[in-house]
């Protein structure tokens, strides 16, 4: 056949076919997406520091292990309140003439997704220590340490932000460990990563592939038998700071072992701290509103409280769901006022 024996015809046809398909599956959808897309009304562009932090995030290749996309599947709901939509990425443009747009959606989750990490883990102290040495706060983490984002100073200036590193990770370091501007920027970027709520009235997409929960016989709620597993909830929501042994980290996160707040018969302050955070003690880092940020239900809060009251040598009476429910409703009312 002449077609197969004529190199010009053959190769040009092959090229044309590929170009045509490329146009359909890549070029046109991409152009369409970047033209018909606008950022959500409630969203804000990155500040100068946050953007500097993003540059550091890109340079250090964090996207190799951390995604930034909440898919519309049930398993992703731990990483965000709603599935991501194109508008979430609409503000992201080319870094500069030399570097491409960095949506940083990623393809690997060796570490957790970061779409909403600014809400999940906003603590500056935790983030800095975690960057300096991840294993100081999460014992089994395999994330690289980033000590080059910190300086060692004999005497820190008052404007410096120092971090409290446990002795086992201080090996041979004399003086104080001070965060550089790059570290602060990087944390600012991480803190800026929050999902923007959809405009009122808009319903988010549904999470697909819901897992059927094993049915539990609904016998009187007071027994606590059908509460979720408090240990697991503690691991997911509290352990990063207060640690698996409940002892926290000296100078950063308070111990829950023997803590007055945890063991007291009046649990109002306890529930309040879980739901709304805490910033009353100078010597410790600010605690964020874990319960509200992570949408913890009364059942889950009760389970966490009971776990903390009865673990690591703590020996207080478990509380009931009704008690917690009452306090949570009360807190809601006062915060609405």
């Amino acid at each position: 056949m002449d077609f197969f024996d004529n190199h010009k015809k053959l190769f040009r046809t092959a090229l044309a076919l590929f170009l045509g398909l490329t146009l359909i599956v890549a070029i046109l959808p991409a152009i369409n997406n970047q033209k018909n897309n606008a950022p959500l009304p409630g969203s804000a562009p990155l500040t100068k520091n946050e953007h500097a932090g993003k540059k550091s995030f890109i340079a250090n290749g964090c996207v190799a292990c951390h995604t930034q996309q909440v898919r519309n599947v049930d398993m992703d709901k731990v990483f965000g309140d709603r599935p991501g939509i194109p508008a979430d990425y609409a503000r992201i443009e080319r870094e500069d003439f030399w570097r491409n747009t960095a949506t940083l959606m990623g393809t690997e989750r060796t570490g957790p997704d970061l779409t909403n990490v600014g809400k999940r883990q906003p603590s500056m102290a935790w983030n800095l220590l975690h960057l300096y040495q991840p294993r100081a706060v999460v014992e089994t983490s395999i994330m690289p340490a980033y000590p080059w984002l910190f300086k060692v100073k004999k005497n820190a200036d008052t404007s410096d932000i120092t971090i409290n590193v446990p002795d086992e990770y201080r090996k041979g370091i004399q003086g104080e460990i001070v965060a550089t501007q790059e570290a602060l920027d990087l944390v600012a970027y991480l803190q800026s990563l929050k999902q923007t709520p959809l405009p009122t009235g808009k319903k988010p997409m549904k999470f697909l592939y819901k897992r059927e929960k094993p049915k539990v016989a609904n016998n009187a709620a007071s027994s606590g038998d059908n509460l979720p597993d408090g240990g697991k909830l503690y691991a997911a929501n509290c352990q990063a700071c207060h640690q698996a042994n409940g002892e926290g980290l000296k100078g950063a996160f308070p111990s829950l072992v023997g803590s007055q707040v945890v063991l007291d018969d009046d649990i109002e302050l306890f529930v309040d701290i879980i739901m709304n955070g805490y910033n009353a003690r100078e010597e410790y880092a600010v605690m964020n509103a874990v319960g509200t940020d992570n949408n913890l239900s009364a059942e889950e809060v009760t389970a966490i409280i009971n776990h903390e009251r009865t673990s690591w040598g703590n020996d207080a009476d478990p509380v009931t769901l009704e008690e917690v429910q009452k306090i949570m409703e009360f807190l809601k009312l006062t915060s609405e006022k």
Partner: peptide, 20 residues
């Protein structure tokens, strides 16, 4: 073709980057 489409330095805003 692939390198040209993916590297052309004046486009791919937002999700366009991901599609490409």
């Amino acid at each position: 073709v692939i390198a040209f489409v993916a590297y052309w330095p004046t486009w791919q805003t937002g999700l366009g980057e991901t599609i490409v």
